[in-house]
Nucleic acid binder design. Sequence first.
DNA 1: TATAAAGGTTCCAGTTACTGGAAGGTCAAG
DNA 2: CTTGACCTTCCAGTAACTGGAACCTTTATA
Lengths: 130, 130
Amino acid sequence: MNIGEAARQSGLPAKTIRYYEDIDLVVPRRGGNGYRSYSPTDVHKLQFVQRARGLGFSVQNCRTLLSLYEDENRASADVKAIAEGHLAEIEAKIEELKALRHTLKHLVDNCHGDHRPHCPIIDGLAGPEH
Amino acid sequence: MNIGEAARQSGLPAKTIRYYEDIDLVVPRRGGNGYRSYSPTDVHKLQFVQRARGLGFSVQNCRTLLSLYEDENRASADVKAIAEGHLAEIEAKIEELKALRHTLKHLVDNCHGDHRPHCPIIDGLAGPEH
DNA sequence: TATAAAGGTTCCAGTTACTGGAAGGTCAAG
DNA sequence: CTTGACCTTCCAGTAACTGGAACCTTTATA
């Protein structure tokens, strides 16, 4: 099938699918007219990548996961290790954002938000001494 | 003062400070030798940006905040609006990441993580039907 | 004074994961 | 035969830096 149909079935933009070919993630055969020709297996891979990206896995991780997906002799431990690593990153990011939110909320809550220039947010950003 | 000292005082890498000049965020004068010469005011601006970036504000927002920082006639409402917008983005991001974490944790918890190939994580990524 | 280290300069390229757009080839329908 | 949908490649841009090369200036030391 052509890239348009592959896009429909995978939920990925055609542009992205071309990009995935560019970086050797999912490489289709070519028809006589030069068009990309996606097999059902190719589409499964695209769907796989679409879901993995949707869960925030990096393209590099997707590459590894895809090879594990295709490896009948994989060890589930290898998959789990990647997922746990990613989970740890997500949790770290959440904590980081919570800390930012905490600080920012303080500043916002103390700002009158009126026409006057005095502003605790600006003061906070300018630093303790100023 | 030279860029090195400005870097020390602002906590920003010299590379980043040069970049900020490139994008017209903080532009110093130049000495006779062609070296960048940072005034105390320039350094305050760099510190301001460093803190704002540390709170996750985009460089574009930093640009606006910096102009408000320098505007004696600013309305604190303008500052607050930017901060609230950013806060909302942070909160949205946190929710998004929490949802990812939830899904991912499910998958990870159900994976044995041993030498065998069966893997709920892979199955989850492959999709419902497969 | 020679020189070497430290610190400054510019410019180019790479990072992540796409996305937009231009110029042009192919195909199915009417 | 033309129109429109779909396909192709290639180039550039995004955000916010970061690394590195090649080269110049200043400062400290032998």
